[in-house]
């Protein structure tokens, strides 16, 4: 059902964990099936220095979380905001059609974390 790449990320997910005192935290949930993804960002000079995630969901949800963290690490926040759900799914060699909605979580969570960072910065 899943590509090798998906299974590889599911088995050895990259960047799992939390960042204490993260600069931005994004949490998104999937109302459709009840999954949750949380992303932590460490940002310096608008560059994503470090990123960690925690995900509750299916294999595709875990793999897309892992993939998105690899894709945005070291990128500027502007670049990270450009990354789409579609791009994450493609980077994994595609997802089964009924699992496309899971990939929506990944990029959305990153975008939410960046927004959180920007909101905090603007306030403070």
């Amino acid at each position: 059902m899943y590509s090798q790449k998906v299974m590889e990320h599911f088995t050895n997910p990259r960047n799992v964990g939390e960042i204490p005192d993260a600069d931005g935290i994004g949490e998104v949930g999937n109302t459709q099936c009840g999954d949750v993804m949380r992303i932590y960002l460490d940002i310096e000079n608008d560059i994503i220095k470090d990123i960690k995630f925690k995900t509750f969901g299916c294999g595709a949800a875990v793999a897309t979380s892992s993939m998105v963290t690899e894709m945005v690490k070291g990128k500027t926040i502007a670049e990270a905001l450009e990354i789409s759900n579609q791009a994450v799914a493609e980077a994994l060699g595609g997802l089964p059609p009924q699992k496309m909605h899971c990939s929506n979580l990944a990029a959305d969570a990153v975008h939410a974390a960046i927004k959180d960072y920007l909101d905090k910065r603007n306030k403070g």
Partner: peptide, 25 residues
């Protein structure tokens, strides 16, 4: 705190076949 399909995939990698009532499956 864990999701059924993830459990099934992990079990399957060890050769164990089970099933789940999770929404994700």
């Amino acid at each position: 705190f864990v999701e059924g399909e993830s459990l099934l995939l992990s079990l399957d990698m060890l050769g164990i076949a089970a099933s789940s009532g999770s929404a994700c499956t």
